[in-house]
Design a protein around this nucleic acid. Structure first.
Lengths: 201, 201
DNA sequence: ATTATTAAACAGACTAGACGGTACAAATAT
DNA sequence: ATATTTGTACCGTCTAGTCTGTTTAATAAT
């Protein structure tokens, strides 16, 4: 048939993501993307019908990667499933370790999109909310298993405690970017781990 | 002289802030601002030399209001200064109460600007980081007074624990917007309060 | 093995409209 | 009367998107 277009498509997605993290989506022009990727308008609009089609493909790809992070963290802690608290803490620890390796402030497309949500259609924004709800539900499952065996030291609302995982990520990303300090996220997650230990130990 | 321009200027600032929260700054055009405010281009460019001058004035105003929230929370808890832990907890409680009155998801310009920081000059972004550092420093002072009398149940890093206040705000705002749930922020702050109680009680 | 065919992948000039910004006249209040 | 404030027509640039044509590589016929 013809040459393989996947590398081009992937390059567009990768470079656009990096641009969006510091320019926002509206602030990222197609010409900028062409500069960064070295491709041309013809190639771009062959792969994406409109700029907003790119926005949707970008968040889809991002959400898929995000969900696979979630899955692999679940798998890596599955050996601890008989000790739910240990598993929960190890689950958090995995992300602490991950965040400790960062060399520059991290970013999240969910936050970026949420702060200019008018630019996107409902389907695109639904991917954002669905992904966040996946994290909530996963954490809730882990927490409910803990609650069978451990009595919390304080009355807690399981759903909002589940949300705290994503909340700390998102908040730490913002502060990390604002202060240009890449160490913040790991440290903030450590506080969540402390909290869980104090609650259930 | 002539008529008073301050109402016009204030209206521009208020409406722009609301637009930026859902369109981003790049995604907010001057024409949109004119539509929302009902003023004209002549008036706009009389008050702000460029669009970016508006961006700077906007974050300045926002930071001033933010700092006055900080100040008034300090004042409202000053009667508890002899019992540092009580004061710290009451300080957090004030913001829980404030967040419980919200009827729609809140937003923060610091986060909005940080996710399109390339659009702004250094001075503008410095206002963001300075403001966040003010919150950190204030919280650190409160915490240090607690530490004189209370021994934490876990080894903690004071600076990152101070940051957690802003981190939870910023993260809760993002999740609140993404899920369109205005109750999230108060609940998340409650977990911070729980954590502090478990740490120091 | 060489060539012709075909569809995918890409190149780049072009367009219509939106954008930030300007010029200057008109209006307002003292 | 005069400085401040506002209205409006206008301009050059940038933007997303189109159009037409060219290149690439797998396939099929010679």
């Amino acid at each position: 048939m013809a040459r393989d277009g996947k590398p081009t498509r992937d390059k567009i997605l990768t470079e656009t993501k990096n641009l969006v993290f510091c320019n926002g989506f509206s602030g990222t022009s197609i010409d900028q993307i062409l500069d960064k990727t070295g491709i041309t308008k013809g190639a771009f609009f062959y792969h994406f019908k409109t700029k907003n089609a790119l926005a949707k493909a970008l968040i889809e790809t991002y959400a898929e990667e995000d969900m696979s992070h979630l899955e692999s963290a679940l798998q890596e802690t599955e050996s601890l499933k008989e000790t739910p608290l240990k598993r929960l803490l190890q689950f958090v620890q995995l992300f602490i370790d991950m965040m400790m390796t960062l060399k520059e402030p991290p970013s999240c497309l969910y936050a970026s999109y949420s702060y200019e949500s008018n630019q996107f259609d409902q389907e695109t924004m639904d991917i954002v909310s669905d992904s966040i709800l996946e994290w909530r539900n996963t954490f809730t499952e882990l927490l409910n298993k803990v609650l069978v065996e451990n009595t919390p030291k304080k009355d807690i609302d399981v759903q909002s405690l589940s949300d705290q995982f994503v909340v700390i990520f998102e908040g730490a990303f913002v502060v990390s970017k604002a202060l240009n300090d890449s160490d913040i996220t790991a440290k903030q997650l450590q506080h969540l781990k402390n909290y869980l230990e104090l609650l259930f130990d």
